[in-house]
Simulated assay, not measured.
Amino acid sequence: MNRVGFIVSSLLVVLVLLSSVLFVVDQRQFGVVYALGQIKEVITQPGLNFKLPPPFQNVSYLDKRLLTLDSTNAEPVYTAEKQRVVIDWYVRWRVIDPTEYIRNVGLDEGTGASQLNVVVRNAFQADINKYTVKELLASKRDALMSSVKTQVLATVRGAKPWGIDVVDVRITRIDYVSDITDSVYRRMEAERQRVANELRSTGVAEGEKIRADADRQREVTVANAYRDAQKVKGEGDAQATRIYADAFGRDPQFAQFYRSLEAYRDSFKGKGDFMLLDPANTEFFKAWRAPAPAAASRN
Rank of each mutant, 00 (worst) to 15 (best):
K286L: 07
T155F: 10
A229P: 04
L62N: 01
R200D: 13
Q38V: 06
K51I: 02
T68M: 15
V14G: 04
V222T: 07
R103K: 13
V166H: 04
F50Q: 05
E206L: 14
V14K: 01
T181R: 15
N49T: 05
A240D: 15
G236K: 13
K271P: 04
V105H: 00
V177Y: 09
L22F: 13
V152T: 05
A205R: 14
A295V: 08
R103G: 00
V86A: 04
E100Q: 15
K82S: 11
S178P: 13
G5P: 03
L52A: 05
R3H: 12
R250H: 11
F254C: 06
D108T: 11
F50K: 06
D70R: 15
L62M: 02
I7E: 07
S260N: 14
P46W: 01
A143G: 02
V184T: 07
S267F: 07
A159D: 14
T99A: 10
V91D: 00
Q115A: 10
S267T: 15
R121W: 11
Q29P: 00
L48C: 02
R218F: 04
L66C: 05
L18E: 03
G31V: 09
W288N: 10
G110D: 12
S114C: 01
A143L: 12
A196T: 13
E100A: 09
D278L: 07
L199K: 11
V177W: 07
V85A: 05
N117C: 02
N122F: 08
Q256I: 03
A238D: 14
F257I: 03
W162S: 00
E135P: 02
S9N: 06
A35W: 09
P54F: 09
L17Q: 05
L48P: 00
D26M: 06
G110I: 09
S19E: 11
R227F: 12
Q230H: 09
R141N: 09
I43E: 00
S20M: 11
K82W: 10
D215M: 14
Y226A: 14
E135S: 02
R141C: 03
D266M: 05
F257P: 00
T221Q: 15
A247V: 10
A123L: 07
P46T: 03
S267H: 10
I43W: 00
I43P: 02
K64P: 03
A196L: 14
V4P: 05
Y90W: 08
V148T: 04
N58P: 01
N117K: 11
M1W: 09
V86W: 03
Y185G: 07
F56N: 01
